[in-house]
Design a protein around this nucleic acid. Sequence first.
RNA 1: GGAGGAGUGCCCGAGUGGCUAAAGGGGACGGACUGUAAAUCCGUUGGCUAUGCCUACGUUGGUUCGAAUCCAACCUCCUCCA
Length: 421
Amino acid sequence: MIEAGKPATKLKSEALAVLLERGLVHQSTDLEALDKRLNDGPITAYAGFDATAASLHVGHLMPLMTLRWLQRLGHRPIVVLGGGTSQVGDPSFRNDARPLLEERQIAANMATIRRSVERLVDMDGPEGALLVDNAEWLNEFRFLEFLRDYGSQFTVNRMMTFDSVKSRLDAQMPLTILEFCYMMLQAVDFLELAKRHDCVLQVGGSDQWGNIVNGVELGRRDGRKLHGLTVPLLTTANGSKMGKTAVGAVWLHPEHLSPFGFWQFWRNTADADVGKFLRLFTELPMREVERLSELQGAELNEAKKILATQVTAIVHGPEEARVALEQGDALFSGDAELTEPTHTMALSVLAEGVGLLELVVASGFAASNGEARRLVEGGGVRLNNRVVDDARRRISSGDLGANDRLSLSVGKRRKALIGFE
RNA sequence: GGAGGAGUGCCCGAGUGGCUAAAGGGGACGGACUGUAAAUCCGUUGGCUAUGCCUACGUUGGUUCGAAUCCAACCUCCUCCA
């Protein structure tokens, strides 16, 4: 196993050296061979994303950043959308089955995911990255044909030894054939990409190790040398899994989390994580990363702003990042307000009045009315910069501030500007 | 195959018939302090069309005016014996 972030002097390839230095490498199926292959010339590498949720979140950023670096260094990325595999559901390290998704839902999720992916990896031009849907081939298989061609290449004995399913089996929880076959499907994906596009590397989260190894082995039986690379599981300095906030995951898609909310997430990074995050999620030169990481005390706040602005620029675009930075500066330096609405509601609802709690929930600051009520009663909710602690408070047109807008904040850091039209 | 122990909220864990939406701790969120950090202190921590209703103590059924608590069956985990 490789220790993340340690510059490896023995490596020949620039790509692997960069990935290691950035802390994006956890495990590799054959590091030396991969290094040689990367050094011999451009390769094609892929990462797959199932459409299990409506948007990707920060956890998906690491494999995407890996592809981005590879592309920048002359290699070609492929992003696989799991239109086929999402119909099955990856059982890896889960103790219960995922709810089966409707095809319509999968299609909708894929469209959203696709948009985020396109920002991170350059799809344009003949040299651009490829975006493919594994339903393209998985949907075409006939059952017996599949069993004969691929089922014969896998033994149940070996499949049962993978850690990803072991805990489920040990706990005597049901693991259906459907789920059990997931790793075969992902292995077939890899082989299919190798055949179609000469793809030789799969990148994934560390929980994907078993699935990736299966693909590499399937390739070997077909006479191909394939490689697997996993990124580390990201934890914060507090030891918790990163990317969860009060009201859910940190989504990459602007409809699920506004660019400003996204920027805020990164701005609120704990001191101890700043250096690590700058390495992993920005493309600043290492010298700059090191300089920023060494800042002390309140000066580190500048590094956090740079971190937030850089990541936001990559995920949402430079313009959105600039706006978020300005908003952040304005909001926290004095009594300035958000300038652009983060939410909009129909003006007509004000005629009857909207409940404050309803508004807090609609802004995404609380998951239920009850939670909103507690926030209000705890004195954490401000309306037009005044604390409101009456949970029954109703909002009508008389409460609107300048430009018919309403500023709402929860805690010190979460703010919304609601426009009415 | 036999004997015993266990399964509680996001997690750990107390609770052996009504005072239990369930002690305590962790985590999370809000407040104070600060640097939109950490540490510390205080508060909150199932849902709802809300002086009430619904859901929840492995599963299903039963006893009872009333069950996390008693009974039965089942499922799972642990220990000891064979």
